[in-house]
């Protein structure tokens, strides 16, 4: 198969990334030509503490197979307790997913810093693998 016709059947992932911290990390992955699946799409937001649980549910109901929150972790310039706040949001969202009959495993959060290009690529590959497992369960 030629490069131009290569098919990517991996699960569709929506990434919520943060403008100042994780977005530069994801940009860096591209700048270094690190390959990850074309089924990964990114929406940038200012801070992971501002992500609404309904957005995650809407994404899954609209065809995405998983949602990944690339959080600032302890690097967040807005909130020193950003990780804790985002953790609470993730829990709340997972409960919402359960209520709607969706696996909470379809939402994942990890800190992606401005130089975490390799870890971002590896998170995407692992998440897609895990989603395939969830789907086959």
């Amino acid at each position: 198969m030629s490069i131009a016709a290569k098919k990517d059947d991996a699960p569709h992932i929506l990434v919520f990334s943060t403008n100042n911290i994780s977005d530069p990390g994801i940009d860096m992955a591209g700048s270094a030509h690190m390959h990850y699946s074309t089924q990964v799409q990114v929406i940038s937001v200012p801070c992971s503490s501002g992500i609404k649980p309904t957005w995650v549910l809407h994404a899954l109901e609209s065809g995405f197979d998983g949602v990944f929150i690339a959080a600032d972790g302890t690097d967040c310039a807005y909130l020193p307790d950003c990780t804790t706040r985002t953790g609470v949001l993730v829990k709340k969202t997972q409960d919402l997913l359960k209520e709607h009959g969706r696996s909470p495993k379809r939402l994942r959060m990890a800190a992606v810093c401005s130089v975490c290009s390799e870890s971002f690529v590896s998170h995407m590959a692992n998440f897609q693998k895990d989603i395939v497992k969830i789907a086959s369960d």
Binding site: I3, A4, A5, K6, K7, D8, I26, D27, M28, A29, G30, S31, H33, M34, H35, Y36, S37, T38, Q39, V42
Partner: peptide, 14 residues
């Protein structure tokens, strides 16, 4: 660019 063409140099269709 950073989040598309450069990350998928192996898959023009995708």
């Amino acid at each position: 660019r950073e989040q598309c063409s450069w990350a998928h140099t192996d898959n023009m269709r995708g």
